[in-house]
Amino acid sequence: MPAHLVGYAPGVYDLFHIGHLNVLRHARSQCDYLIAGVVADEAAEQAKGRPPVVPLVERLEIVRSIRFVDAAVAETPGDTSRMWHQLRYHRLFKGDDWRGTPKGVALEEEMGRLGVEVVYFPYTVHTSSTQLRGVLDALVPPRPRTAGQS
């Protein structure tokens, strides 16, 4: 085990909730220094099919302020190896909803080639950003986007 084990916990971290906090808490317990990768707005929209409710600059500030997080950086999904080349982390943390999926298997293979261990944590079933977003959408329907709006 390296003397200074660096961990990386990527996520959208939209509508920050207890599941996010649990992932960051568990991740920090498994490394000496934790970097949270906060997925950029456009990339989050591409991955999830809709933009985050909370803009990237605010999500970064929220995640950066969590005591378990030593640093927070903006990330573009699908570019995990680029992030590794920038940050040189030893462990990558994901929710166990990724385990055994095609994306999870590909991630494990990619990280394995770089010598990075992928560690899974239990997914918080009772609270998720998707559920929170559904409640918000039911209360206040999303505004139509106009040209040039991001």
Score class of each variant (00 low, 15 high):
Gln30Ile: 04
Val69Gly: 04
Ala27Gln: 04
Arg91Glu: 07
Glu58Ile: 13
His26Tyr: 09
Arg82Ala: 11
Arg50Cys: 13
Arg88Gly: 02
Ile66Asn: 04
Ile66Gly: 03
His85Gly: 11
Leu15His: 08
Asp41Ser: 13
Gln46Gly: 13
Val57Ser: 13
Pro52Gln: 08
Ala72Lys: 03
His85Gln: 15
Gly19Lys: 12
Arg67Gln: 04
Ala47Trp: 01
Val69Met: 00
Leu92Ile: 07
Glu58Tyr: 13
Pro77Ser: 10
Arg88Gln: 10
Gln30Thr: 05
Gln86Asn: 14
Ala72Phe: 02
Thr80Ser: 15
Ala43Asn: 10
Arg59Lys: 04
Ala44Cys: 13
His20Arg: 00
Leu56Trp: 06
Glu42His: 14
Gly19Tyr: 07
Gly37His: 03
Val57Arg: 14
Pro55Gly: 13
Leu56Ser: 10
Pro51Val: 12
Asp70Met: 05
Ser29Lys: 11
Leu60His: 07
Ala43Met: 11
Ala27Arg: 01
Glu75Ser: 11
Ala72Gly: 02
Arg88Trp: 03
Leu21Trp: 09
Gln86Arg: 15
Ala27Trp: 01
His20Met: 00
Arg82Phe: 09
Leu87Ser: 03
Arg50Trp: 14
Ala44His: 08
Pro51Leu: 12
Ile35Leu: 08
Gly78Cys: 08
Arg67Trp: 01
Cys31Val: 03
Ile35Ala: 01
Asp70Asn: 01
Val73Ser: 01
Asp41Phe: 13
Ala36Arg: 03
Gly78Pro: 05
Cys31Arg: 00
Gly19Asn: 11
Leu87Asp: 00
Ala72Pro: 01
Ser65His: 02
Glu58Ser: 14
Ile66Gln: 00
Pro52Glu: 02
Gly78Glu: 04
Leu21Tyr: 10
Arg91Ala: 13
Arg88Val: 06
Val38Leu: 07
Ala72His: 02
Met83Ile: 12
Val69Ile: 00
Glu58Asn: 14
Leu24Pro: 00
Val57Glu: 12
Glu45Leu: 13
Ala40Val: 12
Gly19Val: 07
Gly19Asp: 05
Gly37Arg: 05
Ala44Met: 13
